[in-house]
Amino acid sequence: MGLPYVLEDFTSIFETGSISNKCCGELVVLGKVWQSELENRTLENPLFEDLSPATIIAKSIQT
C-alpha cells in the first residue's frame, strides 16, 4: 500500500470517516493484518495517548 493510501486510511479513521473506493479496495486486499498493524502503531504513538484503545479500534472498524 502506497503512502497516499496510508494517509487516506489514517485520515478516514481519525478525521473524515470516509474513504475513496480505490483506497477501500486496497484495504480489502490487505485485510485485517494491515488494519491491526495500523491500530497497534497508533496505540504506541504518544501523539494519540488521549484516545482510548476502544476508540481507535472502533474508528478503524468503521472505516
Rank of each mutant, 00 (worst) to 15 (best):
residue 12 S to E: 07
residue 30 L to A: 12
residue 44 E to F: 02
residue 37 E to W: 10
residue 60 S to E: 03
residue 14 F to A: 04
residue 35 Q to P: 02
residue 60 S to V: 08
residue 17 G to M: 06
residue 32 K to Y: 04
residue 58 A to H: 06
residue 8 E to D: 10
residue 48 F to V: 02
residue 36 S to M: 15
residue 1 M to G: 13
residue 28 V to W: 01
residue 18 S to L: 07
residue 42 T to N: 02
residue 32 K to L: 08
residue 21 N to E: 13
residue 17 G to S: 04
residue 33 V to N: 12
residue 55 T to K: 14
residue 7 L to G: 11
residue 4 P to D: 13
residue 37 E to Y: 11
residue 58 A to T: 08
residue 42 T to Y: 05
residue 50 D to Y: 08
residue 12 S to P: 07
residue 49 E to M: 00
residue 6 V to A: 14
residue 7 L to Q: 14
residue 40 N to S: 13
residue 31 G to S: 05
residue 53 P to D: 11
residue 57 I to M: 11
residue 40 N to R: 15
residue 48 F to G: 00
residue 45 N to A: 03
residue 61 I to H: 06
residue 18 S to I: 12
residue 61 I to A: 10
residue 2 G to N: 15
residue 2 G to A: 13
residue 2 G to C: 10
residue 9 D to S: 14
residue 27 L to D: 04
residue 13 I to C: 09
residue 63 T to S: 06
residue 35 Q to M: 15
residue 6 V to R: 13
residue 57 I to S: 14
residue 24 C to Q: 11
residue 39 E to C: 13
residue 32 K to E: 11
residue 63 T to P: 00
residue 31 G to N: 02
residue 59 K to V: 03
residue 22 K to V: 12
residue 29 V to L: 08
residue 26 E to I: 07
residue 50 D to Q: 09
residue 25 G to R: 01
residue 55 T to I: 11
residue 58 A to N: 10
residue 33 V to C: 06
residue 29 V to F: 07
residue 58 A to E: 12
residue 13 I to Y: 06
residue 48 F to W: 01
residue 36 S to K: 15
residue 25 G to Y: 02
residue 13 I to D: 05
residue 41 R to L: 12
residue 61 I to C: 05
residue 52 S to V: 04
residue 58 A to C: 03
residue 63 T to C: 09
residue 34 W to S: 12
residue 46 P to W: 00
residue 22 K to W: 01
residue 11 T to L: 12
residue 9 D to L: 14
residue 26 E to P: 00
residue 45 N to F: 00
residue 1 M to N: 07
residue 19 I to R: 13
residue 30 L to E: 10
residue 39 E to L: 13
residue 13 I to P: 05
residue 19 I to W: 09
residue 26 E to G: 01
residue 4 P to R: 10
residue 7 L to P: 04
residue 22 K to D: 12
residue 51 L to F: 14
residue 28 V to T: 05
residue 15 E to Y: 09
residue 61 I to M: 04
residue 23 C to P: 01
residue 41 R to M: 10
residue 59 K to D: 09
residue 52 S to P: 03
residue 10 F to G: 10
residue 34 W to E: 14
residue 53 P to L: 05
residue 25 G to F: 01
residue 29 V to I: 08
residue 28 V to F: 02
residue 46 P to K: 02
residue 24 C to V: 00
residue 20 S to K: 09
residue 63 T to G: 04
residue 55 T to A: 13
residue 28 V to S: 02
residue 37 E to D: 14
residue 23 C to R: 02
residue 48 F to I: 01
residue 11 T to R: 15
residue 41 R to T: 05
residue 21 N to P: 06
residue 17 G to E: 04
residue 23 C to L: 03
residue 24 C to P: 00
residue 39 E to I: 15
residue 32 K to F: 04
residue 18 S to T: 15
residue 50 D to V: 08
residue 46 P to G: 01
residue 36 S to Q: 15
residue 33 V to S: 15
residue 43 L to G: 03
residue 23 C to Q: 01
residue 5 Y to K: 11
residue 14 F to R: 06
residue 9 D to W: 14
residue 3 L to W: 12
residue 20 S to C: 06
residue 56 I to T: 03
residue 23 C to S: 07
residue 43 L to R: 11
residue 20 S to Q: 05
residue 53 P to Q: 11
residue 45 N to I: 00
residue 26 E to N: 05
residue 60 S to D: 05
residue 61 I to L: 09
residue 46 P to D: 05
residue 5 Y to Q: 12
residue 7 L to M: 14
residue 28 V to L: 08
residue 4 P to W: 07
residue 38 L to N: 11
residue 42 T to A: 09
residue 63 T to F: 05
residue 57 I to N: 08
residue 40 N to G: 11
residue 12 S to D: 07
